[in-house]
Structures are given as C-alpha cells and as structure tokens.
Design a protein around this nucleic acid. Structure first.
Length: 425
RNA sequence: GGAGGAGUGGCAGAGUGGUCGAAUGCGGCGGUCUUGAAAACCGUUGUACCGAGAGGUACCGGGGGUUCGAAUCCCUCCUCCUCCGCCA
C-alpha cells in the first residue's frame, strides 16, 4: 500500500516506477482525483462537526445554569441529516481509496532489471561446481521410490495429487534438515525461533498482501481461517498494529512451518515429484528493520540462506528477479537456485525480498526513529526462505546419489540422523 | 459447551452522560543538584487525519444505536481471565 501524499506530490515518478512492472498503466491521476474528493468531503464534514460541538457545549453550559435550552436543541437537530450524508461520503471515499490502493503492487527499486518474465532475470553469482557423474544421474522420484521412502501413491490415496508421504530415512532427513537450518539461524545468525499459528484471519493475510487479490492461491478453512502459504504471513504480522522504539530493531524471526498452496494457476506444471506440492515444509526468515537498514538486511538475509547451501555442499546460483517476475509486495528479490542433476537445471530453493514499508502500511506497524522525536515511521519488512526444506531434500537426493541408488548424507546432517553416513535401498 | 468477570495512553491503573484526549504511578525526554553517577526535586511526554496557517476533527477492544452531547447508556461481534464440564 502506498502513501497518498507521495503520489500527490510525485505523480510522474510514481507512474514511471509502477509501469516498470509489465501490465501496469499510469494510475496517479485517478488516485489523486479520488483523493481530492475524499479530502474535500472530510473538510466539509469536519466543519459541521465543529459547529455542532460548539452548540453541544453551549447547551451543557446553559443547562448547568438552569436556563431553557429548547431553542438551541431545535437548531442543532436540523444539521444532523446533512452531516450524516457528508460523513457517509467520507467513509465511502476512504474505502474506495483503500480498495484501489490495496490492489496495486509495490514499486520496484531502481536497480531492479526491467523485464517480462523468468528469461529477463539476471544471474549475480554462482557457488560450487555441479558434480560430474560417471553414470546417468536419476531424479529424486526415482531415487526416493527406489529407497522405498517416498510414496506418491499412498499420498494420492489419502489426499489426491500434489501430495507426498515420506517414510523412514527420508522422513528423518527432512526433519534433520529443518533442525539444522533452525539451529544455524538461531544460534549463529541472530534469529528468534517462532512456532506460529498456521491458520490466520483475513487481516493477517491482508497485511502481507495475499489478500484481497490472491485468495485463489490459498486454502480456506470452514471457520473462515486461511492456511498460511508461508510463515512470512504470521511472522511479519507479529508487529501489526504496534509502535516500537527504533533501538528494538531489527527484529529477526525464523520459523519452520508447513506451507499450504492451492497451486490454482499451476495446472500441468511440475506434476512429477515433490517440486510443487500443496503442502510442504519451509524454514522462513523474516526481518523487521528501519528504513536505513533494510537494504543491507536484504544482503545479510540472502547470505544466511546461501550459507545453508554451502554447508550442505550443494551448488547454487543467485539471481536478481526482473520487474516482471517479482512478487506483489516486493521492491527487490533475490532468488537462490540449487543445482538439480536429475533435471540438469538450477531450480528455486529460496527467495529473499525487501518490501520497504509496503506491508507495514497495510498492517500499521511503525517505529519511533528517535526517542525525543514526535515523528513515527513505518517499519521496513523483509522475508526469505532459509530454505525450502522439501526442495533441499530433493537436491540432496539428486546431488549425493551413488550408482547403486544409495544416498550419502551430508556431513553436517549426520548428527541429526543417528550418525549414519548413507541411506541404502 | 455452561456460569461469571474484564478490555482505557509505551506499560500499570482511575474515571458511570457535558469543562475528559482522559487523574495518578511507572517508563521516556529535558533540566536543577553533583567531579561524575545514583537518589531527590522541577518541567515535559499519545496517535492519525484535514487545513497555507490559525486552528480543527477523530480515536478509551471492533462495528452499530440512543442523545443536542457517549470512555460512561443500549445492541452486536471479537479477545482475555476465573470456575464447572469435556478433551490432545
């Protein structure tokens, strides 16, 4: 959500920045017209209210002196209807503005490359050498089923398509991964571990930008709750409605949660395997910072995520998303892609975004920049995966496979798996 | 699920129809004293919006209503607490 004052004062700059996203057209004029109407109605309604407040005070004074008040009362009653109409106008105009503004995506930062889709993203760096195999590497489905620890058939019986059931060593491996990631982020990177609700209300989904536009991508419970598509939602909303002191920032939160996505628009995409599921485990990172800190925090967060892959010895590359591939609330996004030998491709395993004050405005989360000052500012929010656990498991299977279908366990994970070194079929 | 109670400023907590945006305490900020600090004392201290400004308007859990006037009365929803029942 945007500051209407900013749009009023810099309509040209606003439109230019917004239109760097493909599919967006200039909108500042329309917003400013709507806004002018709202302010005018508000000013008029306030004027009438001022008069009425004065009358009410007179009545109070007169009454306490024991005077007759019926004349004044009669006069005030007349303005009631007019005021109700004006107030109604203000409420409607405000609501209209809010609806309008809440459907607009965030402005890309100036250094974000312009483009229409995946193809226009820009690679920044690569880490690790994809391993050379002297046999034909298999994909994770083949490996997992061969181990008899990855069962799509039973999952389909229980739930339908896009679900998987892990058993035995792979179930343990997934738990080990999440445990490892959480330990690193909490013990070395300064994040506070949170175990948040996975069902949230409308306001919470609005705060991070899933609503009102993207309800179709979400699962909804019959109580009206929504299932979180990422822990970004509850973690970022922790500070919703709060005013905090600057010296309590940054706040860094991490959580392992299940994530639920309807994958409504992804029919036919990644149907094989556990790349794209309705339910998956993810360790999420969320930072809440000041305006000054948010850009460096993005670099920090991204390196926290990259570091996990390095310790797992998984080759990756880091790209910056172009304006056409960025999410709704982001100003700038780095994707980290892990090498998958089974696909001979780099695939997304983490996405780190800085949202500026976009989400903070939606959820009204502010801070006081300095203690004696009267001004408040909206906090800046960031989120990133640290990492997608299911996809990390896939990467381990495919990168650490042996010719006989066994899987070498990365050294850093062994302590979480009873010190075994290999999973054998 | 049943019966009660409560939601007020950063926090604690008073206020039951008019001069209440709201006592008081804590905390914060500024100052006096002090070599410095602590203590003590004095002062100050909510947010958002409208307005060029003067100034104005709104907000006492959310929404609605009664009234000339609502933190205060009524309706409704939400949240929390206590007791009982049930239960992982």
């Amino acid at each position: 959500m945007f500051d209407t004052k900013l749009i009023r004062e810099n309509p040209q700059e606003f439109d230019t920045a917004l239109c760097r996203r493909p599919g967006q057209s200039p909108i500042a004029d329309a917003i400013n017209t709507l806004d002018a109407r709202r302010r005018e109605a508000q000013t008029r309604a306030q004027k009438i209210q001022t008069e009425r407040n004065a009358f009410a005070k007179q009545i109070g004074a007169a009454k306490s002196r024991g005077e007759d008040i019926s004349d004044i009362v009669a006069e005030v009653s007349k303005s009631k209807k007019k005021q109700a109409r004006l107030e109604n106008e203000v409420v409607n105009a405000t609501q209209k503005m809010r609806d309008f503004l809440s459907s607009l995506p965030n402005l890309p930062l100036a250094d974000v490359p312009e483009g229409h889709g995946e193809g226009d993203n820009v690679e920044l760096r690569k880490w690790g050498e994809p391993r050379h195999f002297d046999f034909e590497p298999r994909d994770h489905v083949s490996l997992g089923e061969n181990l008899r620890m990855m069962d799509f058939e039973t999952a389909a019986k229980l739930s339908g398509s896009r679900f998987v059931m892990l058993t035995g060593g792979l179930a343990n491996l997934e738990r080990a991964l999440a445990n490892f990631m959480l330990n690193v982020h909490t013990r070395e990177n300064g994040y506070t571990e949170v175990n948040p609700p996975a069902l949230v209300n409308d306001d919470t989904m609005f705060g991070t930008g899933q609503l009102p536009k993207f309800g179709d991508d979400l699962f909804k419970a019959n109580t009206g709750h929504w299932l979180i598509p990422t822990a970004e939602v509850p973690l970022t909303n922790i500070l919703a409605g709060h005013l905090v002191e600057a010296d309590t920032l940054p706040r860094r939160y991490t959580a392992m949660t299940w994530c639920f996505r309807s994958e409504a628009g992804a029919a036919g995409k990644d149907t094989r395997g556990m790349i794209r599921q309705h339910q998956f485990t993810k360790v999420e990172l969320v930072s809440v910072t000041t305006e000054e800190q948010s850009l460096s925090e993005l670099e920090r967060m991204t390196s926290c995520a990259e570091n996990i892959l390095e310790r797992l010895e998984l080759p990756y590359r880091t790209i910056v998303l172009c304006t056409g591939d960025m999410g709704f609330g982001a100003r700038k996004t780095y994707d980290i892609e892990v090498w998958l030998p089974g696909q001979s491709a780099y695939r997304e395993i983490s996405s780190c975004s800085v949202c500026g004050d976009f989400q903070a405005r939606r959820m009204n989360a502010r801070y006081r920049p300095d203690k004696s000052g009267k001004h408040t500012r909206f906090v800046h929010t960031l989120n990133g995966s640290g990492l997608a656990v299911g996809r990390t498991l896939i990467a381990i299977l495919e990168n650490f496979q042996e010719a006989d279908g066994s899987i070498i366990i990365p050294k850093v994970l062994r302590q979480y798996m009873g010190d075994i070194e290999v999973l054998k079929p």
